[in-house]
Design a protein around this nucleic acid. Sequence first.
DNA 1: CATGATAGCGCG
DNA 2: AAAGCGCGCTATCATG
Length: 565
Amino acid sequence: MLGHTDTGRVMIVDLSAEGERLADQVVDAGELPAVVAARAADHRWVWGDTGAWYPALLAAGVRVGRCRDLRLAHAILRGSAAVTESSALRTAREWDAAPVDAATDAGDDRPTLFDLTERPGVPDGIDAALAELARQRAAIASAREPGRLELLVAAESAGALIAAELRAAGLPWDAAVHDRLLRDVLGDRPAGGGQPALLAAAAARVRDALGDPAVSLDSQPQLLRSLHRAGVLVRSTSRWELAEHTHPVIEPLLEYKKLARLMSANGWAWLDEWVRDGRFRPVYVPAGVVTGRWASSGGGALQLPRLLRTAVRADPGWRLVVADVAQLEPRVLAAMARDTAMAEAARGRDLYAGVVASGAVATRDEAKIAVLGALYGATTGESGRLVPRLRRTFPRAMALVDAAAATGEDGGVVSTWLGRTSPRPGTGWRETQSRASDAEASEEDESRARRRARDRGRFTRNFVVQGTAAEWALCWLAGLRRRLDAMPPVAGAAGARASGPAFARIPHVAFFLHDEIIVHSPSEHADSVAQAVADAAAEAGRLLFGDFPIDFPLDLRIAEDAGKP
DNA sequence: CATGATAGCGCG
DNA sequence: AAAGCGCGCTATCATG
């Protein structure tokens, strides 16, 4: 375990498997990388916040095999319905703090004094860490199935390591390819900072078609008024609604919106700000989403347009291993519900084709709409119409999500497969519900309460599936990382130097997005990496669902860039 | 000038 | 205009 002493030095405490304190050692922060590197590769480090400890180690070229991130574990355990003894965790409020990102502390994005006082990190003292670990051990032990929470906390902690490593290594990004793509689509970059030629041309065509030379296309109210004057009676200016009208302005306007979006979200300004030395280094935020999915902060890492994936390019002599899971969430649902009919439909690459073969619906498109509607709680439209047919064919799977929705509507909490629990409803929600059950409640009160109850039901319905899919993905990542670490470093000084001292000679995860992984690997290891990605996926399925026969097929390829072939 | 809300669109 | 979940980011516009 790592923590600080009162004088700001670093204390290393060796703990037995039962959590007993065996030996202490105190070192200066500068000595820590060497001390950590000297431990066995599979040593488990316990620390308050991976983001506060690990970036400095990585910068020194030192990696760790395993860890317990006390902050992330605390958040899981104090909220988990599986934990029957959580009062101690609930009173340890100081562990509810926001993450610290030490990687940005060193840069020019240093948090201001205001940030630091408003968002303190978790305690960094050794005594606080020891006490928190003891609380967590007790909390896990109180669960009926401690193994699930153990697995979840371990996977979450491994994810924290990987998030820090992703930032340290970065995603290989070819700025020249990106620039060429921007110039092809938008026109040359204007020197003065104005609009590139093709964007300006699209804007001119729109103004022409509107007969409104002065309208600002980036102002929604102005554009809406101008559309109305031109006879296009839309209620919003969104792509979806515009596409349903026929008018000379529609085509150029949709074109303009597409180009303007590319320019503002991922144009040259983005390239200048986010790509350095051939790497895109966003901040990943493990468990940044209530369901346990990761969030990101800065650079929009989780929204990279597919159009730009060709700019993701391996270094010379390296390859990208690009993998994503086909229809992860419905597969997870089938396994959670032990729905063998749905698992049968999921056998093989295309779950939607399997749903058609089951006879539930007629076409693949219908299958997709029905399945998504089931996961999200659709009630109207084509999706709402198709969901009941799924309910007949896959009653167990549908019963699981229907029950989760009913619990949520009723104000209860639901949990993922491994035990992450949804937030309790807020005071506003509860007040709305109790007002509606009052004797003098108005019809307005009642309909508002019903609406908000259904909203919450859709959230809890999706929570169990999205959250369990996130758990599967964490296990996949962790298993892959372990396999990559077993591969020998490539010889020679050359390599992916921009990936930093810890990753210049070994295959490493370079990108992760819910159900998709990109590994940057020396060419000679690429085949083994691809095998490791597949093996880790199979292992993740077994870890969560044991022998239940559910496939998690991957789209897997080895390439020089991450663009769709 | 800063902050917050809204619209819109990108990703899964 | 999303029907139907979860996000982050940019631009605009109203408010302080």
